[in-house]
Amino acid sequence: MIAITRSSFCCSAVLLTLMVASQAAAQTDRLYPRGGEVVLGRIKSISKNGIVMTVSGKDQTFNAGAIEKVLFQGDPSGLTEGREFALDNQFEQAITELKTVDAGKLNRDEQKADFAFYVMYCNAQQALSGNGDLRSAASGALNFIKQNTNSWHFFETAKLLGDLAMSLKSYDQASKYYGSLRTAPSAETKIESMYLNSLVKLAQDNAADAASDLQKIVGISVQSAEGARLQTLAKAGLAVALAKQGKGDEAITTVNELIAKLNPTDTETAAAIYNAQGASYAAMGDNEGALLAYLHTHLMFSTYPAAHAEALKQLAELWTQVGKPDRAAEARSELQQRYPGLSG
């Protein structure tokens, strides 16, 4: 029989305490850069410009625009799964998972902020897809910004506020929110600010100024895939601006060049290009050409709600104009069923 003395018990307790402390010190967060390998370390600080992470004893800085996601040590499964669904644009599933999270049991402020962001983000995206209240979503995004001024999601939320304002046709507000992206550390986010503000000008029928801004984006030297994607979107927008100025041939040439180089896996960009082709033909009075372009979005790229809803709206009008009211009714019915908040 082994005797356990008071001194040996105390030593064991000390060793256990040291082991627990060592495990706590070894806790790791996971940061996923866009297009890069996961980085393991410990979050040191977070600001709207990005994250400083201690990796193997050294601090590394990651700009907000270059971060895809962060997994915090101790994340509950509902937050982990909800985050993944949200990033995969499966917002209903994300909301279901996030509802299982007890926010009161989240131990770290950065976890609480991340959880609050994804709840807000999913609700806003649902509203933007026509399945939620736009004004309520905008209020939620504003509240997130006010309560989390140092979140690395700051600029992403500013863009979201601009998108919501655009859907509400509050163009001055949209311009303000999109304009705030110019202060972001990422070069791509600065370009995105110019692009989004040009869309505001197009929505306000200020085609000349929009074309000028879009031409500047096309002429920028970009160094990343995201920068190149934004230039492609800018060319699509430029085609619409040209058509609205009566430069139909130039507009169609521009958009057809984009279609020739189309990446069908980039659904958002493909839908934007075909919608731009439709808008260009419509501006020229070519209803048949516009119909074919919008049908491309409807039949092939319907997974992007905003572009698909726009295509359905235009199809409903165009079918009427070419004397096919039954097809117009079908397009209008699908718009109301799939995107009730965007059917007006």
Rank of each mutant, 00 (worst) to 15 (best):
S12L: 15
A13D: 01
T17E: 02
R34H: 12
V39A: 11
G41N: 00
K44L: 14
S45V: 11
S47Q: 12
M53G: 08
M53P: 02
G57V: 13
Q60A: 06
N63R: 08
A66T: 09
P76W: 00
A94K: 11
T96Y: 09
T96V: 09
L98N: 05
L98F: 00
K99C: 03
V101F: 11
G104F: 12
G104L: 04
N107G: 13
R108P: 01
F115R: 06
A116Y: 03
M120Q: 06
C122N: 09
N123H: 15
A127H: 13
N131I: 06
D133R: 10
S136W: 04
S139W: 08
L142Q: 15
N150W: 02
S151A: 10
W152Y: 14
A158M: 09
D163N: 14
L164G: 01
A165I: 04
M166K: 06
K169M: 09
S170Q: 13
D172V: 02
K176T: 06
K176S: 15
G179E: 00
L181Q: 01
A184H: 12
S186V: 06
E188D: 14
S198P: 07
L202Q: 11
A203D: 14
A203W: 12
D205Q: 10
A207L: 04
A210I: 01
S212K: 14
L214K: 07
S224F: 04
R229K: 09
L230R: 09
Q231P: 01
A239L: 12
A241F: 00
G246A: 00
E250H: 13
A251F: 09
N256D: 14
N256F: 08
T265L: 12
T267K: 12
A272W: 14
I273D: 06
Y274T: 02
G278K: 06
A282I: 07
A283P: 02
G289K: 03
A290K: 02
L292F: 10
A293V: 08
H296C: 07
T297R: 05
H298C: 03
M300V: 06
F301C: 11
A306N: 06
K313A: 09
Q314E: 12
W319N: 15
T320P: 00
V322F: 11
P325E: 09
R327Y: 13
A328H: 05
Q336L: 08
